[in-house]
């Protein structure tokens, strides 16, 4: 049984609008998957299909074997947490702990249990110190961490980060990705990161590339980033470090594609010493 399964899913935003012709992919439980695509590639529609905010025209989306339909909607949403893009448009309450409580309140969690879940969720994202702070006074990265905590309070098994770092500064971006990685490793949570930053895809076990509503590449991130020409046709870039490696290569220094600072430096050092 897959954590998340898209089977022959097609979807369109009305006549002439954006269209997903036919989509098939699966995510295993405990996996960390990145979905890459440029703006408008349809990657964000996936998150909305995965928890039933949108319904496919044809085909089925299932979560742990249960189809995402009217009947299972509630169950599915408890299993799949989604964190969206804009840190300002996801919080309903003015105070951090009240906002984190919102989801848990919705599903009728007893009061004492909500308290425990707030503790758990805020410490998972490192925001315990801000429990009583006003949401509007937090930084973008902090607001997104509160949004993640709000999702965690529902105890989901899958968390989808739908371009959740796109509006953040590098520090905020790093914080969010660290939280995602930790939840994956320590809590065994299934993580799907939808992003246009190639650097973020490097953290994942597996990367999927979307273009015009279609899944066009799939594989280990490092493997995907060796296929530069192909990526360019999908309006995607290599991570910065990959571009440097490529330039070195083209300039006549055959360094291996490492996508890692330490390894690249070793490669360069090796090349320079054997060359002299």
């Amino acid at each position: 049984m897959y954590a998340l399964e898209f089977k022959d899913v097609s979807f369109s935003y009305g006549e002439g609008g954006f269209r997903i012709p036919k989509l098939n992919f699966t995510v295993k439980e405990g996996e960390f998957v990145a979905i890459l695509g440029h703006n408008g590639s349809g990657k964000s529609t996936l998150a909305r299909l995965a928890n039933g905010i949108l319904a496919p025209d044809r085909g089925t989306v299932s979560v742990f074997g249960a189809p995402v339909d009217e009947k299972h909607l509630y169950e599915v949403r408890r299993q799949v947490g989604v964190v969206f893009q804009n840190p300002d448009n996801q919080t309903v309450a003015s105070i951090v702990e009240d906002d984190v409580a919102f989801g848990a309140e919705n599903v009728g969690t007893p009061r004492e249990e909500i308290g425990r879940r707030i503790d758990f969720a805020l410490s998972a994202v490192g925001m315990q110190a801000h429990r009583l702070s006003a949401v509007s006074r937090l930084s973008g990265g902090q607001k997104q961490r509160v949004a993640i905590a709000g999702v965690l309070a529902l105890k989901p098994r899958i968390m989808i980060l739908d371009e959740s770092t796109a509006m953040l500064d590098p520090r905020g971006r790093r914080e969010i990705m660290e939280v995602a990685k930790r939840l994956n490793q320590e809590e065994g949570m299934t993580i799907v990161v939808i992003t246009h930053f190639p650097e973020e895809a490097l953290l994942a076990d597996r990367a999927l590339v979307m273009n015009r509503g279609e899944l066009v590449m799939q594989g280990a991130p490092k493997e995907i980033f060796t296929r530069h020409e192909e990526l360019i046709t999908y309006n995607l870039e290599l991570p910065r470090i990959g571009r440097i490696e490529k330039s070195l290569h083209e300039g006549g220094m055959p360094v291996k594609s490492t996508l890692n600072i330490e390894e690249l430096v070793n490669e360069i050092a090796g090349e320079l010493t054997c060359g002299s």
């Binding site: 440097i244 070195l248 300039g251 006549g252 220094m253 360069i268 090349e271 320079l272 060359g275």
Partner: peptide
């Protein structure tokens, strides 16, 4: 950076 590395090489 690339230029300087290649020059070193």
């Amino acid at each position: 950076f690339v230029k300087k590395i290649l020059a070193l090489k």
